[in-house]
Design a binder for these strands. Structure first.
Lengths: 201, 201
DNA sequence: GTCTATATTGAGATAGAC
DNA sequence: GTCTATCTCAATATAGAC
């Protein structure tokens, strides 16, 4: 009990600082955010940060691992359900948008910094996670094509990339505290994606 | 003649260096690219760069202004044509993808660095250009809704953002020297956007 | 867990010779 | 137009007191 309470308190402080760092990384970019800015936001001096984290890099590492662990678990479970492709795809889209609501800053950091970070050996796991996600989504699209739910001329890999990018990049303008709920946005996107923007004749 | 030839030679060298810098900014990020890396790529020492450019910032400034000047001029002309909304929208999509072919690195830099750069007063013009572009595209979408070419429940601003993001972010995986020509990619995107991915019943 | 104080490095940028 | 040499500063990170 005592140990748990202590651990929880430690984790809580870490979590607070990490959340503040995430907001700064998202707003100002990882490279241009200084540890002094993070410390300022936390109300401490920069040296004190190193009691909680090894380095600035380990902060973004922890942030991205947390996001990936959660979202890949959700994707795996959804695809494993074995439901109809359209149903599964809608659920995947909702999960992706759900992350915008629950982990907005982390998603922004992933979107903005992926290409630069992934070049470092330390962040090679970002590639692995991206590959697994692509395989999961593509398998659903392929199944949908085979079953006649999606157009037969659909390119599953290209369509996946199109969807992934279109969804995640909306983190740049979407505000989860605004009028549009993540699920609503997800359904609107999915609606356009399935039926297109053209008027029905 | 002599003056022109000299100016051309100067501009050529500037252009070469700027193109190299653009590739580095696109691949490694603006903040993490060093002036020494740019100089290495150009085969000179870092101090020599300052004969051509005031600063690293002025390099990215020149790069982005060049892209914006060209693409906004194209958008203006296309919208001013007054053709049918579907026709104009297709042309806009082709122009956006065309920039991926002709200015790939600059587009990548714009996509990746916009949010950070725009916070500096020096780069406030990025906002103005983005605003004008949004107005142009949205006007086409609104006209299309009024004329019954697009769904009546379409949200023009949201749809514009969706399209813009989906198109530009493809610069992250699209290789203009590969199998897919920009116009082909543009038409595929436009096709999906108009008609959706669902099979026709 | 935070502060004081500081080590260390690497970055952007400059001056003047060639 | 490039090089040599160097300045200056800001950033990450550390050591030890409290």
């Amino acid at each position: 009990m005592t140990t748990e309470a202590t651990d929880a308190a430690v984790s809580e402080r870490r979590g607070e600082i990490l959340a503040l760092a995430a907001e700064l990384f998202a707003a100002r970019g990882f490279a241009t955010t200084t540890v002094r800015e993070i410390a300022d936001a936390a109300g401490i001096l920069s040296g004190s940060l190193y009691h909680h984290f090894d380095s600035k890099e380990s902060m973004v590492d922890e942030l991205l691992r947390g996001l990936l662990d959660e979202i890949t678990a959700a994707y795996r479970a959804t695809v494993a359900s074995g439901d109809e492709p359209v149903t599964v795809l809608r659920a995947l889209v909702r999960e992706a948008f759900g992350a915008l609501g629950s982990h907005r800053a982390a998603v922004a950091v992933m979107l903005n910094e992926f290409n630069v970070l992934v070049q470092q050996p330390r962040f090679a796991y970002l590639w692995e996670a991206a590959e697994e996600t692509e395989q999961l989504w593509v398998s659903v699209l392929e199944k949908g094509v085979r079953r006649g739910a999606f157009r037969s001329d659909l390119d599953p890999r290209m369509t996946y990339r199109f969807m992934r990018d279109a969804i995640w990049v909306s983190v740049r303008w979407y505000r989860p505290d605004g009028a549009i709920a993540p699920e609503h946005l997800a359904d609107q996107y999915f609606d356009v994606l399935l039926g297109g923007i053209a008027a029905r004749s």
